[in-house]
Simulated assay, not measured.
Amino acid sequence: MDRGQICDLFTEDDTPVLVKPALLHHRRFDYTPSSRLRFILRGGSPHRASEWADLPDRSLEEQLAEIVQEVGLRGEAAERKRLADQKAREVERKRWEAAIQEAHAPYAHAYRVKHLGEQADTWYQARRLTEYVAAVGVHATSLPPGQERTEVEAWLAFADAHLHILTESVSAPKLPTPPKPSGDDLKPLLGHWSPYGPRSY
């Protein structure tokens, strides 16, 4: 017979038996443990093991309790880490908020110092313009009636109105209220912190 159509089997007394392949029935399961069946646990921090195998002296079923315990331990560790990370983020956010709050004081001080310098400049400008306008006024009185005198007097009216505004702004100085600072305003005052959040570097 064609050996491509049969395979060899033997009885207990080694008598050969010819059987067609179609008559062979393959077993669906192995009845003796082998290391081919494995359980691999990935993720988390390993405590005891990450891999279990079906062994001759210890089946995979006998190791299920250990596997379940390992899953539980990793889950508990992951939850502890999650809570610790959450607490660390909260602490970091509070420190960032405190740094932002502390940066408002030097920002307000710098703004007021700048405003003070601007007020002083305005005061000096008002003094110079007052002297200049007074001199032009004396000159205008010496001019004969006519177009030139009319134009000078119109200019003097404009200058007086402008001087009035300048004088009012420097005669009663007030402590200015700084506007809400932008991120760029606070950035130089925050050290290693970002003005846009505790994790924005």
Rank of each mutant, 00 (worst) to 15 (best):
P176V: 09
R3C: 05
P56I: 03
K87L: 14
L163R: 07
F10Y: 00
T167D: 02
W193N: 15
E79M: 10
E131H: 06
T167C: 06
R42Q: 12
W155C: 00
P179I: 01
L55G: 00
P198S: 05
V138E: 14
G197L: 13
P46L: 10
A159T: 11
K174H: 06
P56E: 09
I100M: 01
R89G: 01
H47Q: 13
T122M: 00
E92L: 11
E118L: 12
F29T: 12
W96K: 00
H192R: 08
L55I: 00
H192I: 04
E62C: 04
G191C: 06
P16K: 13
P106T: 10
H104E: 04
L186S: 10
S142L: 15
V136P: 01
D8S: 14
L190C: 11
R149A: 13
P56N: 02
S50L: 10
Q119A: 03
A88Y: 13
T32P: 11
T15H: 14
R95M: 08
T167V: 06
Q119C: 01
L83W: 07
S35N: 07
D57A: 08
K20F: 00
M1K: 03
A172Q: 06
R112P: 05
A49P: 01
D121L: 14
R58G: 11
D160Y: 07
H109E: 14
K94C: 05
Q86H: 10
G44A: 09
V17Y: 02
A120F: 13
S50C: 07
Y31E: 13
T15E: 15
P145Y: 14
R38K: 13
E90A: 14
K174W: 09
A134D: 10
E92R: 06
K20H: 03
S50H: 09
T32H: 08
G146H: 10
T15A: 08
L186V: 08
L143R: 11
A110E: 04
H115T: 09
A140N: 04
S34D: 11
Y201C: 14
A103R: 04
